[in-house]
Amino acid sequence: MENLNDYLPQSVTGKNILITGGSTGIGRATALLLSGLGANVIIVGQNEQHLSDSRADLSKKAKGEVYSIKADLSTEEGIMNLFDQVNIHFAKLDVLVNNAALAAGNTEDGNYEEWQKVINTNLTAYIACSAEAVKQMNGEGHIINIGSMSADVREETGSVYVATKSAIQGFSEAFRKQINKKGIKVTLIEPGAVDTDMQEQPTDEKKEKVKKLEMLIADDIAVSVLYCLSQPKRCDVVDLKIRPHLQLI
């Protein structure tokens, strides 16, 4: 894939990209891919060790600038501080990947405070980060929201998580209508099961599911993000659903 840029309609080289939840899983894989193709990348996370480890890995392969920011996106203060720092690093923001999310079960598994943190992280932060990103995009850019198959499957074991991801579906569709006229694209990517830390099964079990074509890996979603970013200006990938071949849902 060293010469991948030669085949892309729109190159990500030199693009300024912000990835929330960028220190693990899908966000980390996306950051590694895009920075390796010459994008300037900021990753955001809450765990200092994860951020440090990811930044070190990014620095080894990156062909663009790499930054990491610690921020709690469940709070207004965390989001405002994040975009203050983005403004310091980037004169203009080209791409926002809203990816940070918390796992959640059903209403029997939590309490009001826990639900509020999940909703703030999984939904309100997407809205707030999108609003701030538009201000820094100067009339042209791309916002990618990482959703989930849960918005369609609506499993009974995850009603709280389902509520947030279903809301992301509606927000993405309406928000695209709002800002496309400003030259900004909006894409919703909804993965099926992916081998990340959010999946609570043992590592060996997840690897076996990948082998059996019942689970994706984070790189699969990262390449999907690249595909959406690579389309010519006339072309919007509005909604992309990616599921394991044998996850029959």
Rank of each mutant, 00 (worst) to 15 (best):
G21E: 01
G21V: 03
S23L: 01
I26L: 00
A31N: 02
L33H: 04
L33K: 06
S35N: 04
G36S: 02
G38P: 03
N40M: 01
V41H: 00
I43F: 01
Q46Y: 07
Q46E: 10
Q46N: 10
H50K: 03
H50F: 05
S54V: 05
R55F: 15
A56K: 13
S59V: 08
K61A: 11
K61G: 09
A62N: 00
G64R: 01
G64P: 04
V66N: 06
K70T: 13
K70A: 14
A71M: 08
A71V: 08
S74E: 03
E76L: 08
E77P: 13
E77G: 15
G78M: 05
G78S: 12
I79Y: 08
I79Q: 08
M80V: 15
L82T: 13
L82H: 13
D84P: 10
D84F: 10
Q85D: 12
H89A: 09
K92E: 05
K92A: 07
V95E: 01
L96P: 09
L96M: 11
V97M: 05
V97Q: 06
V97F: 03
L102F: 02
A103N: 13
N106Y: 06
T107D: 10
D109L: 02
D109Q: 09
G110H: 13
Y112E: 12
E114L: 14
K117V: 12
V118M: 04
N120R: 13
N120F: 05
N120L: 07
T121F: 02
T121N: 00
N122Q: 00
T124V: 15
Y126W: 07
Y126K: 08
I127P: 13
I127W: 10
C129T: 14
S130F: 10
A131G: 06
A133P: 07
V134L: 06
V134P: 07
V134R: 04
K135T: 12
M137H: 06
E140P: 07
E140Q: 13
G141M: 05
H142L: 03
I143G: 12
I144Y: 10
I146S: 10
S148E: 08
S148A: 15
A151Y: 02
D152G: 08
D152M: 11
D152Q: 14
R154M: 12
E155V: 11
E155Q: 15
E156G: 09
